[in-house]
Amino acid sequence: MRVTEGMSYQTLLRDLAFGQDRLQNSQNEVSTGKKVTAPSDNPIAASDIVRLNTEGNEANQFSKNLTFAKAKLQIADTALDSVEQMVERARTLGQLSLGEGNPASAYVAELNGLRDQMVSAANTTHAGRFIFGGSITTTPPYVKNPDSSVTYQGDNQDMPIQVTRNSTLQTQIPGSEIFSGSVDIFSTMSDLANAMQTGDKSAIDAQVKKLEQFSDVVSVARSKIGGYLNAAANIDSELSSTGLVRKSELSQVQDADLAQAITQLTMNQQQLQATMAVGARLSQLTILDYLK
């Protein structure tokens, strides 16, 4: 083929432009550490990246939900722990009042105090919300009436939250399943106080038995909460292990192999230098130098 100077220079210009382009691409890859920075770099990888990022964002939210649930469940557990102690004390008081020569009035006063504490335990809050009122969280679930009876104003609904795509976690147990469930602790305690006042031993005995039943209810509730907390811990480790898998998957589709990228960068650099060197030689080649 006939080759003109113009062709050589045009080819040189194109080669330089290509070389610069390749160099810039590998520079980008090295400096961002990513091999996919735009969908067109690899459309399939881009849609994977988008999916993995969303999964990650969703998992972050699940993890926040989980933290919230754990805090709330722990507060419920602490509250129920003190409830157990109160019930134990109330039972002791009942048994003490069965003994001879013990002044019932002192026990009654303590029992009434315990009952008030029980009301406030049943009205425990987490982040300003009542945790034993079912889905009614902004008003106290247990209200002490003027006649000192206590009524439940919550409902019996659960408050589950989503913690993985496929599972929810209960964050509370409604008061209607604990304080005013099979045994109403508040009426039991006031019945006990009345029985102690009148010294009706069989009635005291009956109420103490009820207290024991309530104690069982509370320990069932506590073991439920323990179960939820256990599940929360499992899900937590599941979230972090799937998070690791996802991160490594994301890194595989998105991240540049740095060693390879730097090698490529060096190669492209050398190629461009070679092209430039050829260009310098090109201008030295002319017949005019020999026509003297």
Binding site: P39, S40, P43, A46, R51, T54, E55
Partner: peptide, 17 residues
Amino acid sequence: LTDQYGTLIYTVGSDVA
């Protein structure tokens, strides 16, 4: 929803590519 959006991203990406 993510699948649907991913398809859009894939379409744009492969059109550009």
